[in-house]
């Protein structure tokens, strides 16, 4: 990771090859929750990207000062500060978006993408590379959200970003209800797996312990993966 890669690569990997939502399976909660409309998805994607880029920059700038043992709490404080700033800005200048995002705006704090990138990338790389990595991941996240939202809003209400394409009475409203979220996400994941396989890449799976942002503070790290240790515990 530490060796120099061209910056353009740091950016593009977040878009497709390591898309946080469809390939790394991070940040599922906001993806499912706010993808009912294109505007909500854009707002969420933007807010999360800003937090991601800013926290990546600060964490990478402070990476030599923060002691290894307390880095997770330190990261959480930095991320939470930026989330609070974004929250205030959105409340002041875009109250409609604040309304539509609701509780999911403060919940960006626990979005695994952000803590995950801090732990996996920003804590080990330079400021500029981290900023570019954050930008790439942010755009990848926003892109996946938009894809979900376009499908759900179009089929669920017959509109795209508020512009009516076909009459709403023919729309399948279930697509903007929670089950539609799970369904569309599953289908997109299947498509992503198919594309990945045609390029000889493994399919997306829920990750093991190495990529988990909690790995550092987690007492289960020595036992392999959470799944395994949970299995052991139940056998015991």
């Amino acid at each position: 990771m530490a060796d120099k890669k061209p910056l353009s690569k740091e950016f593009t990997k977040g878009l497709i090859a390591e898309n946080p939502v469809l390939r790394l399976v991070l940040g599922t909660c906001p993806t499912l929750a706010v993808s009912t409309s294109v505007s909500g998805a854009l707002g969420m994607g933007l807010a999360a990207s800003i937090v991601l880029i800013c926290s990546n920059i600060v964490i990478s700038a402070l990476r030599k000062i923060i002691p290894g043992k307390v880095r997770i709490p330190a990261y959480i404080v930095i991320i939470a500060s930026f989330v609070t700033i974004v929250q205030m800005v959105v409340k002041a200048y875009a109250p409609a978006i604040d309304e539509s995002l609701g509780v999911y705006l403060p919940l960006i704090v626990v979005n695994c993408i952000i803590l995950g990138r801090a732990e996996a990338f920003a804590g080990k790389n330079g400021v500029i590379a981290s900023a570019v990595d954050g930008l790439g991941m942010g755009v990848g996240f926003t892109g996946a959200l938009l894809a979900m939202a376009l499908i759900r809003e179009f089929i669920g209400t017959g509109a795209i970003s508020g512009t009516q394409i076909f009459p709403a009475e023919y729309a399948m409203i279930i697509f903007i209800l929670p089950p539609g979220g799970f369904f569309v996400f599953g289908m997109l994941m299947a498509v992503a797996n198919k594309l990945a396989e045609s390029k000889g890449k493994p399919k997306a799976e829920l990750h093991g312990c190495e990529s988990c942002p909690m790995a550092a503070s987690c007492s289960l790290i020595n036992t392999g993966s959470c799944e395994e240790s949970v299995k052991e515990a139940t056998v015991r």
């Binding site: 399976v25 279930i174 209800l177 929670p178 089950p179 539609g180 979220g181 799970f182 369904f183 996400f185 599953g186 289908m187 994941m189 299947a190 498509v191 797996n193 198919k194 396989e197 399919k203 997306a204 799976e205 829920l206």
Partner: peptide
């Protein structure tokens, strides 16, 4: 291509319908 996560998500979708 539905094995693993995709089918799990579709199953979650059906479970979610029951709660609707």
């Amino acid at each position: 291509f539905m094995q693993g996560l995709p089918i799990t998500l579709v199953a979650a979708s059906l479970t979610s319908i029951s709660f609707l």
